[in-house]
């Protein structure tokens, strides 16, 4: 049954799928960015697929490789309990179409990915920083950001913000 699903995915999106691999009992589909939204929409709404829960969405930074950023979606189907990982390598620009209209969970998760990696999600309803304060500069989970931050050795000063 689960391999049926895979067949159907390949049948519909064959040319857009860069790789399918199965390791340690987890299935991963690497999709090209042109069709990633279509594929996810298909996975979400198709009767047979019904991956109706977005368990996780996160970014990975492969500094030095080109393209650099990857976005990872982890899906789960409530009907048959199957988990599927979909990955997409961004094109040259750090931008990709949002999926927050497919799963509400993507709303915050995409904001977080934007906050941490600076990946922009096109058409996201409210793309702001979520964890860090608005005046923070840089995106900490990028590999070229030091873990202690840039101004670690300077004494910390608070800026008192005005009342809202």
């Amino acid at each position: 049954m689960i391999s049926d699903k895979l067949d159907k995915i390949i049948k519909n999106f064959g040319t857009y799928i860069a790789a399918i691999k199965e390791e340690k009992g987890e299935r991963t589909i690497l999709v090209k960015p042109e069709a990633h939204k279509e594929l996810l929409r298909f996975l979400r709404y198709d009767e047979e697929m019904s991956y109706d829960m977005l368990i996780d969405l996160c970014g990975v930074d492969y500094l030095g490789e080109n393209p650099r950023f990857e976005v990872v979606y982890l899906l789960r189907s409530m009907r048959d309990g199957d988990r599927l990982r979909v990955k997409v390598r961004l094109n040259g620009e750090d931008e990709i179409e949002t999926v927050s209209d497919l799963w509400r969970a993507a709303d915050w998760l995409e904001r977080e990915t934007y906050d941490m990696f600076g990946i922009r999600f096109r058409n996201h309803p409210d793309l702001r920083r979520i964890l860090l304060s608005d005046d923070f500069s840089g995106h900490p989970l990028r590999k070229d950001f030091p873990a202690e931050g840039f101004d670690f050795d300077k004494p910390f000063e608070v800026k008192l913000e005005e009342e809202i």
């Binding site: 873990a147 931050g149 004494p155 910390f156």
Partner: peptide
């Protein structure tokens, strides 16, 4: 937590 977002001790403020 020696990290970019943690104040290294409240006595700094």
């Amino acid at each position: 937590f020696k990290s970019y977002n943690v104040v290294q001790g409240v006595d700094q403020i």
